[in-house]
Design a protein around this nucleic acid. Structure first.
Length: 315
RNA sequence: CCAGAGGUGGCAGAGUGGUCAAUUGCACUAGACUGUAAAUCUAGCGGGUUUUCCCUACGAAGGUUCAAAUCCUUCCCUCUGGA
């Protein structure tokens, strides 16, 4: 069975660096699994930029760091919302191509849903976004959305947990799906199963306090190399405030500095907290995947142990 | 030194005699999540193995009252204005 290596985990654990290292060692190519790195122009903030010590070049939107090809970067226009569907369509092709080149695909990233969709498939992925339905439902109150779903699709409503029932955005999507009536249309495929691979899932982790301070340091470093300018540039290039907000974290918070709503100092404090919380959410997601083998990067010899594991899997 | 304002849970900030272990926001903890996922959402959040119960708590110490974060006295501290 074709092998794929995956390096997962929360932000700021050095996934990319380690991925590049392993790619060099095992003749691999990297497939980024990151919902923000897909966008052109989100470079510093999304963590695309390599270390100063690394050599990198970009040709035709294709990145190469220290001689290693990195895929799924700059594949989307930041003005336009990207989706899981877009990601797996493209990334699965990229993986096939790497395999045809007789190289090892190394999926590196922290976007859990994308990774899951890529490796396990997702039901009803062929149901597109219905913009008009979405627009219509967005004006509804939470209660109204709940009533509507309860009445028109009681089975779905019953299946939802408390958290989901209060999630306006999710409620809207369920309603949106309903208007497409996929369950009557036998031609729509319930599941898009990807080919089955032999995937070694490596998880990189650190004790939370350490993680938090790594996040803080990294943010300071990114600020020093022009993160704020990057956000300002995107804004001047026509990304709306709302769009930047929806991009989240550095983009969502720093835009308020660009538009002079808050000071940089305040923004940085807020941002650090938000990234801590984000890292926590990533952990919550990945913890559920029992197949991930975790390595604490602050523990001794983790690198050796990890490499041993990879090489015995890879042969 | 005088005059005003004020000291509430990790922080901000409500509450001005009982329904207050104390609204709310933030932080924090745990979690959910099948086309926005760096998004969106839920729960918990003083302590206690008996939980419609007990203890400790609204600057400190006393007091009034059946009952106080809320009223009174003194003290300590902070801020603003005047010397």
């Amino acid at each position: 069975m074709q092998k794929i290596l995956a390096i997962l985990g929360p932000t700021a654990t050095g996934k990319t660096d380690f991925g590049i290292y392993l790619a060099q060692k095992y003749n691999g190519e990297i497939v980024s699994c990151d919902s923000r790195q897909v966008y052109k122009g989100l470079d510093i903030g999304s963590g695309k930029m390599p270390n100063i010590s690394s050599k990198f070049k970009i040709k035709n939107s294709k990145w190469e760091i220290d001689g290693i090809d990195i895929w799924m970067l700059d594949v989307a226009d930041p003005k336009i919302q990207y989706s899981v569907k877009d990601y797996i369509d493209k990334a699965s092709k990229v993986i096939e191509e790497i395999i045809l080149r007789d190289k090892l695909p190394i999926v590196v990233g922290g976007t859990g849903l994308y990774f899951k969709a890529l490796t396990e498939g997702l039901d009803y992925l062929d149901l597109p976004i219905d913009k008009s339905a979405r627009k219509r439902y967005e004006r509804f109150s939470l209660v109204k959305l709940q009533e509507k779903l309860k009445n028109s699709y009681p089975k779905k409503w019953r299946d939802l947990n408390n958290s989901e029932r209060h999630n306006k955005r999710r409620l809207i999507r369920h309603l949106e799906i309903l208007t497409m009536n996929p369950y009557k249309d036998k031609s729509s495929s319930p599941n898009s199963k990807p080919p089955s691979y032999d995937i070694l899932k490596i998880g990189l982790t650190v004790p939370r306090p350490v993680l938090n301070s790594r996040i803080d340091d990294r943010l300071d470093a990114r600020l020093n190399v022009g993160l704020l300018k990057e956000v300002e540039g995107l804004y001047k290039n026509g990304l709306s405030e709302d769009r930047l907000k929806s991009l989240g974290l550095e983009y969502g918070v720093l835009i308020d500095v660009v538009t002079q709503k808050i000071s940089e100092k305040v923004a940085v404090d807020i941002l650090k907290i938000k990234i801590h919380q984000f890292a926590k959410r990533q952990m919550t997601w990945f913890k559920k995947d029992q197949e991930i083998i975790w390595f604490d990067i602050t523990s001794q010899d983790y690198q050796i142990k990890l490499e041993n594991m990879v090489s015995s899997w890879y042969h």
